[in-house]
Amino acid sequence: NQASVVANQLIPINTALTLVMMRSEVVTPVGIPAKDIPRLVSMQVNRAVPLGTTLMPDMVKGYA
């Protein structure tokens, strides 16, 4: 199973992502692939993302 990107903490709306905010985990449904973590750094979330939430492409500005 492919690992997805999961929030390692509460990420407030419009926050630029950093490595410490994200972890990889095998979850259902599948979200953004963990291999894309380096690409996500500095991108902003367009909503508040609670701890443990799988990041989906529509949550990150400029990803999709």
Rank of each mutant, 00 (worst) to 15 (best):
N1K: 05
N1D: 15
N1Y: 10
N1C: 15
N1W: 09
Q2G: 13
Q2I: 14
Q2E: 15
Q2S: 14
A3E: 15
A3C: 15
A3K: 05
A3S: 11
A3G: 07
A3L: 13
S4A: 03
S4H: 01
S4R: 02
V5C: 06
V5D: 01
V5L: 03
V6F: 02
V6I: 11
A7Q: 00
A7C: 06
N8H: 14
N8C: 12
Q9Y: 14
Q9W: 13
Q9F: 15
Q9E: 13
L10Y: 08
I11H: 01
P12T: 09
P12K: 08
P12C: 15
P12Q: 07
P12I: 05
I13D: 11
I13H: 09
N14K: 05
N14S: 07
T15Q: 10
T15Y: 12
T15R: 06
T15D: 04
A16K: 05
A16S: 09
A16R: 06
A16D: 06
A16G: 09
L17Q: 00
L17P: 02
T18E: 04
T18Y: 03
T18N: 04
L19I: 05
L19R: 07
L19K: 05
V20Q: 07
V20I: 08
V20H: 08
M21Y: 05
M22Y: 02
M22G: 01
M22I: 09
M22F: 11
R23I: 06
R23L: 04
R23W: 03
S24V: 09
S24A: 11
E25L: 05
E25D: 08
E25I: 04
E25C: 14
V26M: 12
V27Y: 02
V27H: 03
V27N: 03
V27I: 10
T28E: 15
T28N: 13
T28R: 03
P29S: 06
P29L: 07
P29C: 11
V30D: 15
V30P: 12
V30F: 14
V30W: 12
V30T: 12
G31S: 02
G31C: 03
G31I: 02
G31Q: 02
I32L: 06
I32G: 01
I32W: 02
P33C: 15
P33D: 15
P33T: 07
A34F: 09
A34S: 10
A34N: 07
K35S: 15
K35R: 07
I37E: 03
I37S: 04
P38W: 12
P38C: 10
P38N: 13
P38M: 06
P38D: 08
P38Y: 12
R39Q: 09
L40T: 01
L40V: 06
V41R: 04
V41N: 04
V41F: 09
V41T: 07
S42H: 09
S42W: 12
S42F: 15
S42C: 15
M43N: 04
M43S: 08
M43D: 03
M43P: 00
Q44A: 10
Q44T: 11
Q44V: 11
Q44R: 11
Q44F: 13
V45D: 00
V45F: 01
N46A: 11
N46L: 15
N46D: 11
R47S: 06
R47C: 05
R47I: 10
R47K: 14
A48P: 07
A48T: 11
A48H: 10
A48S: 13
V49K: 00
V49R: 03
V49M: 05
P50H: 13
P50F: 14
P50W: 12
P50C: 11
L51N: 09
L51T: 14
L51M: 14
L51Q: 12
L51S: 12
G52V: 02
G52K: 04
G52T: 03
G52P: 00
T53M: 14
T53C: 14
T53W: 15
T53S: 15
T53F: 14
T54G: 03
L55S: 01
M56Y: 09
M56V: 11
P57A: 13
P57N: 14
P57S: 14
D58W: 12
D58R: 05
D58K: 08
D58A: 08
M59D: 13
M59K: 02
M59E: 03
V60T: 01
K61G: 08
K61E: 07
K61I: 13
K61S: 12
K61Y: 09
G62V: 04
G62Y: 13
G62S: 14
G62T: 08
G62E: 10
Y63M: 04
Y63T: 03
Y63K: 03
Y63C: 04
Y63F: 11
Y63Q: 03
A64C: 15
